[in-house]
């Protein structure tokens, strides 16, 4: 464990909590892409199956359970409890265009051809593009609530910090996972446009305007 990975995990946890609280407190999921949240739930489910097979640490296990629990709770709030506020018309990204290529890539490029490893690889590739429906939805509506931009900032920051963690681990531990690094780079690059807007427009107006 190093400072980049710890702050990365905390940033990820913050994002998940921010979103869950926003929906719960405002009793509305307006402006939130349910499809992205379903993809995140799938990412955590396929990645954390090792909860059933191996124990690494209390931190590792508890964080995984929190991530999975919050992901499914968020999906539940969007599609069941506050489904009347779900903006299905703007959440129109065709996720099959993500899941199918990612699934194919996971079968073709992985570290070893075992079910657990392919599912883990699938979750790594899927996570790198899971935010696209959300970014697409914001570009369609042309705006996002301030709290949603904070959610996206923390979510984007987490993987950027993980990139620094991988540099650290390569230098100090000789650890190198090209699949995670490649997907992490793609994931972080997807947020660059948003990061720029978040920093330049930060705090100016209540509704953040996102250029399409």
């Amino acid at each position: 464990m190093n400072v980049f990975r710890l702050t990365g995990d905390l940033s990820h946890l913050a994002a998940i909590i921010i979103l869950l609280l926003k929906i719960w407190k405002s009793r509305s999921c307006a402006g939130i892409s349910g499809k992205s949240q379903i993809l995140f739930a799938v990412v955590f489910t396929t990645r954390y199956l090792d909860l059933l097979t191996s124990f690494i640490s209390l931190y590792n296990t508890s964080m995984k359970l929190i991530y999975i629990g919050c992901a499914y709770a968020t999906v539940y709030l969007i599609y069941v409890k506050f489904r009347a506020t779900y903006d299905g018309n703007h959440d129109s990204f065709r996720v099959e265009f993500l899941v199918v290529p990612v699934g194919g890539l996971a079968v073709l490029i992985n570290h070893n051809f075992s079910l657990m490893e392919i599912l883990w690889t699938f979750s790594i590739y899927l996570e790198s593009v899971a935010i696209l429906p959300q970014l697409f939805m914001i570009s369609k509506t042309g705006e996002a609530e301030t709290i949603t931009t904070h959610y996206l900032f923390c979510l984007g920051l987490y993987r950027a910090l993980y990139l620094l963690n991988w540099i650290w681990r390569y230098y100090f531990e000789g650890f190198l996972d090209m699949i995670a690094i490649f997907a992490g780079l793609v994931q972080t690059v997807l947020y660059c446009d948003f990061f720029y807007l978040y920093v330049t427009k930060g705090g100016k107006d209540r509704k953040k305007v996102m250029l399409p």
Partner: peptide, 10 residues
């Protein structure tokens, strides 16, 4: 350089 077999990252 090796890819650590046990996945210890979230």
């Amino acid at each position: 350089v090796f890819q650590q077999m046990e996945k210890d990252e979230l």
